Computed example of a mutant assay.
Amino acid sequence: MNLSQLPLPVVRPDFGAVGGTSELNAVVGALLTYGLIVAVLMVIVCATVWAFGSAQGSWQAASRGKTGLLVALAGAVLTGGALAWANWLIDLGAGL
């Protein structure tokens, strides 16, 4: 028997088996809200450490504050972008 003559199985995801996208949106939104709050608080703390370290002549504190500020800003940007990405994925999944 030739293998090319066998019917190919059709494998597709069952999107009806997974429900609750509204609950998923609520959970993702709540987690991202907490993440943004923490990122903004870290921006404030690190900017303060950088300012005080520079004013007091402590280059170690100023350097750590500057690094922390850049990491906190990157975290805030990634957390803010994650909401748009999650919404896009949910809309994409609903359209399949």
Rank of each mutant, 00 (worst) to 15 (best):
N2M: 14
L3G: 04
L6I: 14
P7V: 07
P7T: 04
P7L: 14
P7W: 11
L8N: 11
L8R: 11
P9T: 06
V11T: 07
V11E: 01
R12E: 11
R12K: 11
P13D: 13
P13C: 09
F15C: 02
G16F: 10
G16P: 00
G16N: 14
G19A: 06
G20L: 02
G20M: 02
L24G: 00
N25G: 09
N25S: 10
N25Y: 00
A26W: 05
G29P: 02
A30R: 15
A30C: 06
L32N: 05
Y34I: 03
L36C: 12
I37V: 11
I37G: 04
I37M: 09
A39F: 02
L41V: 06
L41A: 15
M42H: 07
V43G: 04
A47N: 04
A47V: 06
A47E: 09
A47C: 10
T48M: 14
T48E: 05
T48C: 13
T48A: 15
V49C: 10
W50P: 01
W50N: 01
F52P: 01
F52S: 07
F52V: 14
G53H: 02
G53W: 00
S54V: 05
A55N: 08
Q56G: 15
Q56A: 15
G57A: 03
W59H: 11
W59G: 13
W59A: 13
W59T: 14
Q60H: 13
A62K: 02
S63A: 14
R64S: 08
R64K: 15
K66V: 06
T67F: 10
G68L: 01
L70N: 08
L70Q: 08
L70A: 13
L70C: 12
L73E: 00
A74L: 10
A74Y: 03
A76V: 03
T79R: 07
G80P: 04
A82R: 00
A82C: 07
W85P: 07
N87H: 14
N87T: 10
W88N: 02
W88Y: 13
L89D: 10
I90A: 05
D91F: 11
G93T: 09
G93Q: 10
A94I: 01
G95T: 09
